[in-house]
Computed example of a mutant assay.
Amino acid sequence: MDGTAGVDLVARARAVAPLIADAANEIERTRRLTPGVVDALIGNGLYRALLPQSLGGSEAPPEIFMEMLEEIAKADASTAWCLGQNSVCAMIAAALDHESAHEIFNTAPGILAWGAVAHEARAVEGGYRVTGRWDFASGSPQASWLGAHVRIVNADGTPRKTADGSPELRTLLFPLTRAVMHDVWQAIGLAGTGTNSYEVNDLFIPDRFAALRDVPEALREPGPLYRLPTGSTYSLGFAAVSLGLARATLDAAIALARAKHQSLAASAMRDNQAVQGLIGRTEGDLRAARAYLYGTAHAMWRDLSASGVFTPAHRSAVRLAATWTIQQSADVVDIAYRMAGATAVFRSNPFERRFRDMHAITQQIQARDTHFEDVGKMILAEGR
C-alpha cells in the first residue's frame, strides 16, 4: 500500500468531525449513533479502514487507523469507539474465503459487530450449532452481521484442541436478523456506543462463516496487517481514542482559561501563574503519551512489515504503551475537568460528558493495571 488511501482516511475523518460534534448530544440522548453520522462514516469509507484492499478496503497501517480514530474522538468518543470496534471486526475478512467476506462486508451497510468470548459451539455436518448470549457488542445498532467467539466441541461433546493442545476458538458469523438483541447499555459513559447484548438459540452456522481468528495459518490475505492480532489492534485503537478525547478536553480547558475570570480572583485565569504552569505540564504529559504510543506502533509495524511475525515482545510493547496512554489520558482529562471548576458540571459545556466517557474507557480491558504486571513479569524474566 502506498499510503495515499490511508492519509485520505485521516483527512476524511477530520472533514466529518464537525458533523459528528453537532450530533454528539443526540448520540448521547438516544444511546446510538445517529443515521446521519453512520451515513457519513460509511460514505467516507471509514468503517473499511482495516478491510483488505482485495475487498475494496483501505488496509491501512495501524498509525493511520489510530490517527483516524483520534480525529473522530475529538468530536465524540462514542462514535470513535464504535468506529474502532467495528473496524477491527472487519479484519476477520482476511480469514474468510473471498465470496463469504464479500457477502458480509460489501452488502450495505457492511458492518460487523461482536462481543466477548463465551460459550461453546458443537461441530455438526457442514458447520456448527450454537446457543448462547454475548455481551459488549459495541456498534451493534449499526451492524448488519454479528460474530460470536466460541470454544469448539466435537459431536460427542469433547473439546476440540489445536496442534499445541489449547482449546480451538472460532468466530461464528451470522446476520444480525438471526439474533435476539437486548438493549442493556445504560452506562455512565460512552453512552452512545450501543454496546448491547445478543443471543441465538440452536443456530446453524455453515463452515464458511466459522473463522479461525488470529491464526496466521488460516489467513487468506498476504498483507502484514492481518498478522497483527485483533486484541493488540484494539489496544492501539482505543488508546488513540483516549488521546483524542484528552486533546479535546484539554483544548476546552485552555479556551476557558483564556476567557474566564474566576470568582473572587484578582486576575483572569490566563494570567494566573498556577494555571499557566498546570497547562504547560499537562500539555507536556499529553504530548509525551502520544509520542510514546505512536513510537511504539511505528516500531512494531516496521518490524512486522519486514518479518511478517508479531512477536511476544511486540505484544508486550503494545500492551504497555496502550495501557499507560489510556491512564495518562485519563489524568489529563481529570486535570482539565478540575481546572474548569463549576463550569465543568453543566451539560451545556464540553467537560462532563468527556469526563464520563474517559472514565468508561479506563474500565475496559485495555486499561487494566494487570497489564503492567504482565509486562513487568516479562522484563524480569528476560533479565532486563
Rank of each mutant, 00 (worst) to 15 (best):
A288M: 13
Y294T: 02
M300W: 01
S316G: 10
Y337I: 02
R287V: 11
R315T: 13
I279Y: 00
T323I: 05
H314L: 14
S316V: 10
A340M: 10
G308T: 09
R287I: 02
F355S: 03
N272I: 04
A340K: 00
L278I: 04
V275K: 03
A268M: 15
D369T: 10
H371V: 09
F351L: 06
H359Q: 06
S263A: 13
G277Y: 01
A288K: 08
Q273S: 13
L264A: 11
R290Y: 05
D334W: 04
A265W: 15
S263L: 15
G280W: 04
Y292C: 09
Q366Y: 09
R319Q: 14
T343Q: 03
I335P: 02
P312Q: 11
Y292N: 13
R290W: 08
T282F: 01
R281S: 10
L278P: 05
G284N: 07
H298Q: 08
A297N: 03
S348Q: 07
W301Q: 11
R368D: 15
S348V: 00
G341V: 03
M300Y: 02
W301A: 09
F355T: 00
D271V: 10
G308Q: 03
A360V: 04
M269A: 10
H314C: 14
N349K: 05
Q262I: 07
E373F: 05
Q328I: 09
D357T: 03
Q364I: 11
T323W: 01
G295V: 01
A291C: 04
M339T: 05
G284E: 10
S307D: 08
I365S: 12
R338C: 05
Y294D: 14
R287H: 09
D357K: 02
L304C: 03
A297F: 01
S316F: 07
R368A: 12
A266E: 15
T296W: 09
T362E: 08
N272K: 00
R319F: 02
A268V: 15
Q363S: 05
S267L: 10
V275I: 12
Q327H: 07
Q327P: 08
S307K: 08
Y292E: 15
E352F: 00
T282R: 03
G277A: 09
A266T: 14
A367T: 06
G308H: 10
F346C: 07
D271N: 13
R287W: 08
F355L: 01
N349Y: 06
T343A: 07
M300V: 13
D357W: 00
T282V: 02
T370R: 11
L278D: 10
L293R: 04
S267Q: 10
S329C: 12
D285R: 12
A344Q: 07
Q262F: 12
D357A: 04
R319V: 05
